[in-house]
Amino acid sequence: MSTSNPRKLKKMMIILSKATLENVYACFILANGARMEGIESEIFFTFFGLEAIQKERLKDLHVATVGNPSMHIPTLIGGLPGMESLATKMMKNKIEKLDIPPIDEFLEILTASGTKLWACKLAMDMFDLTKEKLIEDVDGVLTVGDFYDRAEGDGTHVIFI
């Protein structure tokens, strides 16, 4: 018996289009979890997802308290000054207790585990971003077509977050 039984799932291609903390963590945990199972994983950062790989932004991601019914906070209260920081702080504390790394350390773990990190070319142009603004661990800037090329092959799944 071996833990390396042939798997049908071989590669996870995750598209991250949002920068709210809960979405970024969901994406990173899925990508890292794939590597832990011996499954390849790649992340395509597009639109607001790009915030998670911008040197100056990635440490300042927040939980959304407005327009997020699952927070169970009335929209008006969720919009009060300080609410978003409070909710973010609470979530970060909880995350730390579960031994889940902060975003910057998580990106290092993903790179060390072999997850590929790609930035979306169109979104980079749209936000006037240059490669210098991104963390060094980013593997490159791709078009959607390039990303799909990489998604070829049996057992590849694409997820949009």
Binding site: T3, M36, D99, P101, I109
Partner: peptide, 24 residues
């Protein structure tokens, strides 16, 4: 957790994946 192994001082996460490929 992978993170704890990486912080052990015994191996880095990258080495851990190299030593035990496909699900370290």
């Amino acid at each position: 957790t992978i993170r704890r192994v990486g912080k052990s001082g015994v191996v880095s996460i990258k080495e851990f994946y190299q030593l035990f490929p496909n699900g370290p």
